[in-house]
Design a protein around this nucleic acid. Structure first.
Lengths: 363, 363
DNA sequence: CTGAAAGCGCTTACAG
DNA sequence: CTGAAAGCGCTTACAG
């Protein structure tokens, strides 16, 4: 790296840049060529009235010929909006989020919007800063994937500034904002009813983060279904924890270490935790589901692989991304009604690790 | 959806929006309060000379007090650059990319840059459109993760416009641009030498896309190491294919169907293909690695899970993302030297599916 | 040290 | 139907 000498001097820069950046064509350039004003060029290009058909045709022709593309910064500044959506992800390394992001980007593109992506950080430490940066870039609105209680102040700030936003997957109590997700409590009950239907009664629960409304609601569904059966979780501790392999592994080890008999089933807050649990179970020389059944939550891409064949609950991440874009664009184009809840359909996916009677191979 | 009535009329919008978006504070507002000009405010805020210490302090105080944050659109328009980097991903659903993106975002943030994320589409169909949109938003430069031969025209266009760009993982022959990746040919040889060292001689190769320089180089390394041992791949067909589970599964089925004896080892172009291969092998009732050994490439997050324990080759995705940002920012701040190749270190990761003598459990 | 002016590239009322 | 002007919110030479 010692061999490079960045030149800050813009004089040199112009001169040195291999392909000297020819100044981009502007609306004024088009106007000059056609012999009219930039205003008329703008009218013509935007399909507004006030230009004769002949002149409009000429302008469009010249613009196309020169490959004119408007400066979106100038356009945004003048219009006061920018056709840009901000998306805040908690943790891109978690495979849950990219599939949401993917669909947000394509849904946004379908309506001519660009997506700014930012990292909120796994603990939300960067969320406030990232959100403000997006607002300062004049995003039309923001989509949050993983808000927590600590984000309340900055969200209130956004609200005061009139910036529309939508929550995916998690929400904050009392903050009346559009939300896209699933009914996590019902989903949790569904999962646990399946586990119970397999005949298990000693069931451990290893949920996600307590700051996550989704995790809390899932847990609530788990516990409530257990209660209906007159049961309670075998573990008092470790009900909540990070949504990671590591956390699943460690919490499972605690469960399995105890001198007492191991749980018959371990119900996890997401698929990552379940992977960690599976590793801990296998490391003890126990079999899945023979000795211990395991369930995940989310149905991430790897869950269906035969070597894993994880019983889980499908959360429709792509549909959630698309729905969030739709709700947000409705807001930014003026809809000012009460907050909406868009609950998507979930699906129990029974594979080998819990409750599959038939041969594994659900791919 | 029938119940919502978007109001396009901005008059109404202002009036109706629950939290009426108070107009944001501008530099002129600060100037008015302090009793100076917006120019002086700008000087003060940007730490430029030409303002007395007393006045500067007063301006900073008022700005802070009112939570002033400059309009980045206006700033970008005036300055001619925008502190924004464009990142083009091929396919976010492929877990290879998010880990790059994650680091690109954080590295960019460290130097005060925002990241625009776009989808190029798995076949690059959207790449040209997406790249132009990013340029029109006045990105300082672009990072491409998965270019192919068909992208050459738009890249030439960017070059002519003087937009700096950097390639990650794949490059295009003859297009002299900065590149961050690994030495895929050497890595391919390394992997195959390991497979050979296990004593296997009937080896099948299931590579990635032929349009990918990375896939071609890996394949070249595989074949060359085989050649040194006086061998060649057992399969003539299916050497190249999509980097997906499905493609791995299908190509493995073809390999295993043939009346002839199955390969002793199947070397894959990435971990997704390897997962598909593992499923196909297990579905035949064969064991891994007893009957057929399998290797992946990338070391995705799931590869280390004990139930999989995939022998693979670690590609340092996060380091690649950080390096790409560094190279790009050097370009956009004036460095105009010849194209650079930043080859990161790779690492062979031996797990259960091929060549681990010891007990599986490499986590 | 300070301020008024011009301009980035658009769009939008507003006169002719 | 057409064009000249003003302005979005900044920054940057340029005079006082």
């Amino acid at each position: 790296m010692a061999d490079l000498q960045p030149r800050q001097d813009s004089q040199h820069r112009e001169a040195d840049s291999a392909p000297s950046a020819e100044r981009r064509m502007t609306a004024s350039d088009i106007a000059r060529i056609v012999g009219t004003s930039s205003a008329t060029v703008s009218y013509a290009l935007n399909g507004n009235p006030g230009v004769s058909d002949a002149l409009r045709a000429r302008i469009l022709e010249v613009a196309r010929e020169h490959g004119f593309r408007p400066n979106l910064l100038a356009q945004g500044l003048r219009r006061g909006r920018s056709d840009v959506i901000g998306l805040l992800l908690a943790d891109i390394a978690n495979p849950f989020y990219p599939e949401i992001a993917s669909r947000v980007i394509s849904a946004a593109a379908e309506s001519g919007h660009q997506v700014f992506l930012s990292h909120a950080g796994i603990d939300g430490a960067l969320l406030a800063t990232a959100a403000r940066a997006l607002v300062d870039h004049r995003c039309e609105g923001l989509i949050f994937t993983s808000v927590g209680e600590s984000d309340r102040p900055v969200l209130a700030e956004l609200r005061a500034e009139g910036v529309p936003f939508v929550f995916i997957n998690r929400y904050i109590d009392g903050l009346d904002a559009d939300f896209v997700g699933i009914d996590d409590e019902a989903a949790g009950r569904t999962m646990l009813e399946h586990v119970l239907s397999c005949g298990y009664t000693r069931i451990a629960l290893l949920g996600g983060e307590h700051v996550s409304s989704a995790s809390r609601n899932r847990m609530s569904g788990f516990v409530s279904a257990l209660g209906v059966a007159g049961l309670s979780p075998v573990n008092q501790e470790g009900l909540y924890g990070p949504l990671t392999h590591e956390s699943g592994f460690e919490r499972a080890e605690v469960l399995l270490e105890g001198g007492s008999q191991p749980p018959q089933a371990i119900v996890c807050g997401n698929d990552m935790i379940a992977l960690g649990v599976m590793d801990a179970v296998l490391a003890r020389g126990l079999s899945i589901p023979g000795d211990v059944a395991v369930t995940g939550y989310d149905d991430m891409s790897f869950a269906s692989v035969q070597a894993l064949a994880l019983t889980t609950l499908r959360v429709p991440r792509e549909a959630m991304g698309a729905a969030a874009v739709r709700l947000l664009l409705e807001r930014s184009s003026g809809y000012a009604g009460p907050a909406r809840q868009d609950l998507q359909r979930f699906e129990l996916v029974i594979r080998r690790t819990c409750g599959s009677q038939s041969n594994p191979g659900s791919r």
